[in-house]
Structures are given as C-alpha cells and as structure tokens.
Write a protein that binds this DNA or RNA. Structure first.
Lengths: 270, 270
DNA sequence: GTTTATGGTCCATTATATGGACCACTCCTC
DNA sequence: GAGGAGTGGTCCATATAATGGACCATAAAC
C-alpha cells in the first residue's frame, strides 16, 4: 500500500481520482463568487475556466438547480445563490468571526479614515472576505472581497505568511513561485523571504505598493486557539498616509483588533 | 434502467440532464452542513443520501480536496470547510442580512428570555440560519441551525407560507404533501390551509406545539424589496410562555425587528 | 443584410463515475 | 483471544453518464 497522500501544491489538479465534474463545479462556483458584484457571464466563465461551453453550461445549470447559483432571467448572468449563503452561515459556526470581525473593521476604518480588510487563509492562499471603506476620499480598490492571492502577496497575506513556522513558509513560497513569477512582477521568492524576516522583526507586515504602485498596506495576523494564523486584518491607503510615523499610530490599533478576534475565537470553540 | 432516485432532496429531482454527480455533491454538502456541530460520519451520510459507500466517499473526497469540506484527521468526521465559509461571505453581499439580523435576534432573546430564530426561505422549504438562546432556563431544542422543513411547518415557516400569494400557497402545500404525511404526523394539507387563513387574519403565525408537544412558537415574515417573503423571525418557548396575553406583548417586538430587516434589505440593493 | 457578439443545444463517442465485494482496523462481548 | 459488529477505506470490470465539436438562435452594430 503505497498511496502517497499528495498534499498538493498550489495548483490543485491532481485529483484523487474519479470526480472531475465536482472539481469543475467548485471551480466555477468560486469563479462566480469572485465576480458576484455584477454577476458572471457564461463566455467569461468559459474562457477563465478553460472548459468547453456545453460543459460549463451543464455544470452551471446543475449548480443553479441546486440553488448554489442563481441565474438572472434577463441578463443571463450568474450570481451566488441562496444555498451558498445558507452553507456559509452554517460554516460560520466553525469559522465564525463574521459579525464581530466586521464591527472591528468598521471601528478601524472610521477612526483611521482608511480602508480595512478581513482576509482568511485558505491553504497556501489568502482570500479577502470583507472590505470596509473609511471616509478618506482617496481609496485604493486594489483589493476586493473575494480576491485570492498567494501567501505573502499584500500586507495581510504577508502577515499570515510570516506567522507560519519556517518549514511552512518555505513550502508556501516554493509552491507559489511559478504563479508569482507569472502574475506578480514586483515580487520574487527572494523578496518574500526577506519580507518575512522583516515582518517578524517589525511585528507587522508592510506592503510598500508592490501590488500597485502607490497603494500601500499594513497588516497583522490573527491566530486561532492553536496558534496557527488563520485570518489577517489589514489597512490600505496611499503611500503618504502610511509613512513610518503614522504606522506607529496605526499598528497598535490593528493589533488590538486582532487580539479581540483571537479572544472571540477562543470563546467560540464550536 | 430504472434508477430509483431517493426523494431525499424534496424538490430537486427533475435534472436538466448530465450532472448527477454535482447533485449528489450538493446533497452531501448540505447534509454535512446540517450535522456540522458534531461533524457527519461517512456511514450516516451513506444511509441518509442513499448513495453507495464508494460513491459517497469519492464525492466527499472531492469536496474535501476542493476545500468545501474538512475531514477531521482523528475522528474521520466531515465538517464544512473554509471554502464554504468564504463562499457564504461572498454570497452575503447579495443575501446580506447576516450581522445586522443577528443583532436583532440577540435583542429579542435577551428582552423576552426565550429563543429567537432567523430562517430563510429556500424554494418550498425553510432553512433555519441562526438560533439565539435567551436566558430563560427551559429551552426547546426542536429547531436547530441548518434544519430544513417544508413551508408551513413551524411558526416562522408558516409565517412565510401565509405571506405568499394564494397560488403559491397551493403549490407549496401540494408539493410537500407527501413529505408532510410521512414526517410530520401532526400536520396535514387541510390543517395548513386553515393555519394560513388564521395567520393572515392574526397578522402572525402560531405553532401550538405541532412539531413537538409543548414546544410552541410564534413567527413573522420578512419581505424583500419586491414584497416577496424571504426570511422569518420567530420565537420558541414552552406553551405557558406563549399564551394569548404574552403573545400580544411579543408580536409587536417581532414585527419591529422584521421591519428593521426589511429596511436593511431596501438599503442594500447590490 | 451581413457581421459579431452573446446564450443555448444536439448527439455520437468514450472517458468517466459506479457499486458489489472485499479489506483493515477498533471496540465490544463471552 | 476468537468471534462479532461496528467503523472507514479500497479495487476494478462494467456501462452509465459526462464530453465537446459543430451548430442554432437571438440581439445589437455597422
């Protein structure tokens, strides 16, 4: 009995065997989720997923019938459906920061004026769950709810990466190297390594406009009761608003909110 | 070949064709969601879904790889995964009562002492999304988050049913008759009809212990901006605490919270 | 009236999921 | 400690169910 349990690397195509339509379905589901604001169009989903059109439509149809997706009668666009919402609310019992975390983001964005984010770690990536805009008029829209980036890319993501043990940092960077090379020209494996070191020294993560020039971010990790980083709280603003002086003001606020969440996670053990 | 389709899912049997594994996957997903508190065991999922064991395991495996489910290394039980949570948070932008609604439930349960529920309509069924317990020491555990009942079964569910136009009431009762006969001995199509009439007259729904003797409930519907009932807010308590006198106190409070939600739904059009 | 987008559908082909039978392990009981 | 009964997990020959190239429909643009 050899059966090597492949702890799959970044691109998760090596199926355990015998269920490709489910993989395709989940892929499409997440794709639609990412585009949910305005809805996802069939053609776009076809190209972004690489599936044949009839296949994509068949799968989408099944998801609509199952209630995980809705299709707008008029525009024919796909949106997340009621069942997805129900599922998420049930899952929130286990992952459940939700309501409380968003309160914290609102506090942060109101007192700082900038935009606050809650992200959740998902294997070797990070997914932006919520974006709460502050009153300051110049707002970066680089990070949106639903966006998914490799660990280390962006402030919150870097905070989580740096909070992992060394071997996992290694593994994450190695697994994502190809994607980073292709999609994040300002980044590199070496840069991530030194960014992790610096983040650990500083006690917070800084993204000096590496995703989009001029759009800076700071972030801290939120650890579960076992000490593993699962969420990140971060703030984004233009470079001028994140100089060293102001960062010294903001970081304690971020850390305070992160601690609140950590306490909530301890209290709600499922 | 006569494939005997287990009627488990209630209404979703007329597949458009060519995607049965997705239907199975979603079925299992919801099944796990319902049992998420303690996790779902393979054997139970096999019997409740009617699938063959290898099939169930293959599908569950695919869902785990996709991140929609987690499997506990030690107990081997299945739980909802991070990806389900992410999906739900993204869907919350469209269905988004979430945080705010739970505030309302907390207010209700604290001031009344009883247990408050938020349920969402899902086609011809209702799904309990959240249960907020009040301080009163005798608590009914008849309705749990994740539970799914036909429209009309239970107070919140009846409130939603009664808020639908007549033809849809007809359709819902007709579609659910078989399930009701089988699983809800205290109910019948005729009883539902008169319950709807009474609910409309009274302005609220009453469940006088029909699901479980002694466990009463009252509920009101929450309508979306188009006037269609989508959510229900309800309270559960023992019979003594829901007599006519106390109901006259409680109903206005329920209605006030329902209105708040309706306003929130109007403000967040998406 | 053609062009070029879109969404949607058909159906012969075969790659795909299927499930009966079986194994491995653990915890009982006697 | 042999048998039993409960788990979770796996094989693999079979035929079922998903596949996708080609095609149709509709709407707007030119």
């Amino acid at each position: 009995m050899k059966r090597v349990r492949s702890i799959k690397t970044g691109t998760a195509e090596t199926s355990g065997g015998g269920t490709q339509s489910i993989e395709r379905a989940v892929g499409l589901l997440l794709e639609v989720g990412r585009a949910d604001q305005h809805g996802a169009r069939l053609t776009d989903l076809v190209t972004s997923s690489g599936l044949a059109k009839p296949t994509a439509r068949r799968v989408l149809g099944a998801l609509v019938r199952a209630g995980l997706l809705d299709q707008d009668e008029a525009s024919r666009r796909y949106h997340l459906g009621a069942e997805s919402y129900v599922l998420g609310m049930l899952a929130a019992r286990r992952f459940g920061i939700h309501a409380r975390a968003i309160d914290g983001l609102t506090r942060l964005s109101q007192t700082t004026g900038d935009t606050a984010f809650l992200s959740v770690r998902r294997d070797l990536h990070i997914v932006c769950l919520h974006r709460e805009e502050g009153p300051f008029p110049i707002r970066s829209h680089v990070l949106q709810a639903g966006d998914r980036h490799p660990l280390g890319i962006g402030a919150g993501s870097l905070a989580v990466l740096a909070a992992l043990p060394d071997d996992e940092v290694e593994r994450a960077i190695a697994a994502n190297t190809a994607i980073i090379l292709e999609k994040y020209p300002a980044y590199s494996a070496g840069l991530l390594q030194s960014a992790v070191t610096r983040t650990r020294k500083d006690g917070y993560a800084l993204n000096p406009g590496l995703l989009m020039k001029g759009s800076w971010g700071i972030g801290v990790a939120v650890r579960d009761p076992q000490g593993r980083p699962v969420y990140a709280i971060s703030l984004a603003a233009i470079e001028d608003r994140l100089d060293e002086v102001r960062r010294r003001e903001l970081i304690p606020m971020l850390k305070r909110e992160a601690e609140k969440l950590e306490h909530l996670l301890r209290d709600a053990p499922a």
